[in-house]
């Protein structure tokens, strides 16, 4: 169902899988978000150097560096507090989740996720964290 409420203004989708980027773009744009794409950690860092986004959807399995490293770098740079970070991963074990939270993520998306789960993570509102 379309979520008309509280779509973020801008979203950075970081994933090396083209299909996932397309999927997320379509989903987010349908609700009026401005979507940026990065297919690697380096690319994401570059984009964020010059652009501010409201939400970052970050795949942990990136080709050049894993998501944690990206977070670390961004954290050093002080970019993290300005945006909502959602980590996306095919693994959902406790260690990773804990580590992700410790690294500064606000939500954890476990593949495969439904549209509802996606929106719940992106703009929690009353629904709370996922």
């Amino acid at each position: 169902m379309a979520m008309g409420n509280r779509a973020p203004g801008s979203v950075l989708v970081v994933d090396d899988e083209e299909d996932l980027r397309i999927l997320l773009r379509l989903e987010l744009e349908a609700e009026g978000a401005r979507v940026w794409e990065a297919s690697s950690g380096a690319e994401a860092i570059d984009i964020l150097a010059t652009t501010t986004v409201d939400v970052m959807l970050l795949d942990l399995a990136l080709p050049d560096m894993d998501g944690f490293e990206v977070l670390e770098r961004l954290g050093e740079r002080g970019d993290l507090p300005r945006m909502r970070v959602i980590v996306v991963s095919a693994h959902a074990d406790e260690n990773r989740v804990r580590r992700a939270r410790a690294a500064g993520c606000d939500a954890y998306l476990y593949k495969p996720f439904s549209s509802a789960e996606l929106w719940a993570a992106v703009s929690p509102g009353d629904a709370g964290e996922t």
């Binding site: 379309a2 299909d19 996932l20 999927l23 095919a90 593949k111 495969p112 996720f113 439904s114 549209s115």
Partner: peptide, 17 residues
């Protein structure tokens, strides 16, 4: 999981939009 995510996502998009 990854291709499955794509399949589910695209299917859902097609169904709803």
């Amino acid at each position: 999981r990854t291709p499955l995510t794509s399949i589910l996502g695209f299917t859902e998009l097609l169904v709803h939009r």
